[in-house]
């Protein structure tokens, strides 16, 4: 914007008032310089700036595409690794289960053998004991029979009778059985 003092001086000097835009005498000057400016800007843009920016944008697009592809690749690899890990984990789990089962079976077998052996021993001991008890019982019956016979004989003798050994034995035996 032109300063006022200048403008006032120009008006005083006889410059035409009105619109400078309609001053035809300046047109060819403006048009000449405008054409030069347009051509200059056109060449600067079309030769230098626009190809360069297009190149930068294409390069960025390429980089982004590459990066996305790399990221996809890494993601696929991560998924693969996860699958492998899962596989290994389930394998290990199955193995552990197998080992545990085997161990359990072995222990069960040992246990069964031991229990059988113990059962057999217990049965043997029980039979022995029963035998001993039966012997003792038989011994005891015999002794009771003797005692009863003797006692009966003595009692009969004391009562003044003559005890018949065979009838006493028969009586005692029948009593004992009864």
């Amino acid at each position: 914007m032109a300063d006022n003092t200048n403008a006032a001086a120009e008006v005083a000097a006889g410059a035409p008032p009105g619109m400078p835009q309609l001053d035809v005498s300046t047109f060819e000057n403006q048009i000449f310089w405008l054409l030069i400016a347009l051509v200059a800007i056109y060449f600067v843009l079309s030769r230098v700036a626009l190809p360069r920016i297009a190149g930068i944008l294409a390069e960025r697009q390429g980089t982004i595409t590459n990066d996305i592809a790399a990221a996809e690749d890494l993601k696929a690899r991560a998924l693969e690794a996860e699958a492998a890990y899962d596989n290994a984990l389930s394998d290990a789990r199955a193995e552990a289960q197998r080992i545990a089962g085997e161990t359990k079976a072995a222990i069960q077998a040992d246990l069964d053998v031991a229990i059988e052996k113990a059962d057999a021993e217990i049965a043997a001991k029980a039979a022995e004991s029963e035998k001993a008890i039966a012997g003792i019982r038989a011994g005891a019956q015999e002794a009771i029979k003797e005692v009863a016979k003797d006692t009966a004989k003595e009692i009969v003798a004391h009562l003044g009778g003559k005890a018949d050994a065979r009838s006493i034995t028969t009586a005692v035996t029948s009593r004992m059985k009864g």
């Binding site: 032109a2 000097a13 410059a15 400078p20 005498s25 000449f32």
Partner: peptide, 22 residues
């Protein structure tokens, strides 16, 4: 002076100088 800012002036020399295309 609202329109004075639009005046075309020679950059070198005084106001009255004629303005050629160059």
């Amino acid at each position: 002076h609202p329109m004075d800012q639009f005046q075309v002036k020679p950059l070198f020399g005084s106001y009255g100088d004629p303005i050629h295309w160059y």
